[in-house]
Design a protein around this nucleic acid. Sequence first.
DNA 1: TGAATTTGACAACGGCTCGTGTCAATCTTT
DNA 2: AAAGATTGACACGAGCCGTTGTCAAATTCA
Lengths: 228, 228
Amino acid sequence: MNEPASLEPARRYRGSSAEERRRRRREQLILAAIQVYGERGYRNSTVKAVCDAAGLTERYFYESFANSEALLVASYRGVTQRLLKALREAGEGSGRPEDRVRAVLVRYFEALRGEPRSARLFLVEIAGVSAELDRVFAASLGEFGLLLEELLDIEAGDPMLRTAVVGGVIHLALHWVARDFAEPLDAVAEAALQLCLLPAGALDKEGLRGGRSPAKLPEQLVPGGGSS
Amino acid sequence: MNEPASLEPARRYRGSSAEERRRRRREQLILAAIQVYGERGYRNSTVKAVCDAAGLTERYFYESFANSEALLVASYRGVTQRLLKALREAGEGSGRPEDRVRAVLVRYFEALRGEPRSARLFLVEIAGVSAELDRVFAASLGEFGLLLEELLDIEAGDPMLRTAVVGGVIHLALHWVARDFAEPLDAVAEAALQLCLLPAGALDKEGLRGGRSPAKLPEQLVPGGGSS
DNA sequence: TGAATTTGACAACGGCTCGTGTCAATCTTT
DNA sequence: AAAGATTGACACGAGCCGTTGTCAAATTCA
């Protein structure tokens, strides 16, 4: 409750201003959170554990974050922003769309293998914590999907199919991480690539059919009765 | 500590034996768990909440389960066994593989929509709770993938691609559940079907190529340096 | 050097949940 | 009806964690 922000211009400490120190502590906490959450899992981690890993005390935790969930969000945002930036760079080169997508996927799996704790945070720990977290997660996956479609020169693909493809890639990554990167990276990337090329092919077929909606499905194939 | 199991043959109560009563209570707890975990989420649920929903007291919880996680496993097994059985039935008819897979998928999404709480338990709550739970989850997804491959008459498909396809379907389901089944079922099933038909197509191509390994990837596309 | 501020270590409070224990009420057998 | 088994309601202790508060040590400014 004692923050005369404008009255006292804040003292310098260890060569940096109050603002700088705050930001540095915040960063330390985020890095520590990625490490701790990635190793123990978010739900098994305590505020104290994160603070210890950051070399700070609880006081500075609450200086920057209202609660653990806020720190998780911030950590997740940090990881995904860096990752998406790296992926965009990987996809920038010229060449066939297929090759550019492959480059992005390889970069993606390399990043996961290079930072397994971040990978776990990105893929596992975020899921199912709260409604807001789920939305954040879905949003970042959406960005991932759009990046892929850009590379494939698809303008308005089927959102459902995009969701399915991205989900498949994510799940593949999850599997790979869970098995400690047992399979060769190339094999994983190749499987992911086959998935990613699906929307392009589907677009061709739909183009021939003419319509956007998947024609009417043969409903008589649907087992009609008791769905309980 | 007072269970003279063989000395006292156990008294009958309300027309059923001690064994029957135990099993019934266990079932009640599992049903209540599906409901409670599916609504509040596993991590936000307490032992007491499950017992209240089951109309039993904590004592009977610990009679049948060592802890919450054991109940979660049991509930999950119950849900998945019923679901997989229903899916096998849906795929039994004769017809083109594609149509049979479609029937299975439609049945799958119908089941999810029909039991949203089970769906949530099956898709969300199970993930990331513990290492054992993750293994149980992966195993049931594996069964799902094998079922699909059976229907497509694929004998030894690429495990990686199978993982990716099943993951895509699961993620599609997840998305659908999270958005309260907003999209029409047919659209979701159709997107899933496109994914599921991918292994058959890939098999053809690989057959033409001849080799199992995906040829050598153009490694120069991989951005070599700093992965940090 | 001395006063003021920032920092770090840690205590303390409150809330929540697990798991166990107690005891009266209910039901079954004799 | 009486005795014994079973059940249900609930209390209790222990432990853990989030969050706030206290206080002395370290650092800076005048």
